[in-house]
Computed example of a mutant assay.
Amino acid sequence: MSFTPTQKRILKAFKDLLIQNGYRNATTHKIAELAMVNETTIFRNFKDKRGLLQATIDQYLADIDHLKHEQKDTGNLEKDLTAMADKYQKFVFDHQAIFMIGLRESFALPEVNKDVEKIPIHFKSLLVNYLEKMQQKGHISQHADIEVLAMNFVWLNFGYFLTQSRFDSPLLSINHKDFLSKNIHSFVKELTC
Rank of each mutant, 00 (worst) to 15 (best):
F91M: 11
I174K: 11
G22C: 12
Q59C: 08
A62V: 09
M100D: 01
Q89A: 13
E132T: 10
F91S: 02
F91W: 04
G75T: 12
A97E: 08
R50K: 13
Q135E: 11
R104H: 10
E78C: 07
F91H: 14
N38W: 03
E111A: 08
A55D: 11
K68W: 02
L171E: 13
L149C: 06
D73C: 12
E117F: 00
A108K: 11
K118V: 06
Y60L: 01
K124P: 00
H29M: 12
M84A: 15
L11E: 02
A144R: 12
D86L: 10
E33I: 15
K79N: 04
T192F: 00
G22F: 08
S186L: 12
E78Q: 15
I19E: 01
I42V: 13
L103P: 02
L180W: 05
K87Y: 14
D145Y: 01
T56S: 00
F93N: 09
A144L: 11
G75W: 12
E70M: 13
T41I: 06
I19Y: 05
L61W: 01
F107G: 02
A85W: 01
V154C: 08
A55V: 15
T56E: 02
G159Q: 01
L162C: 07
V92W: 11
E33A: 10
D16R: 10
A62Q: 11
Y88N: 07
K114A: 03
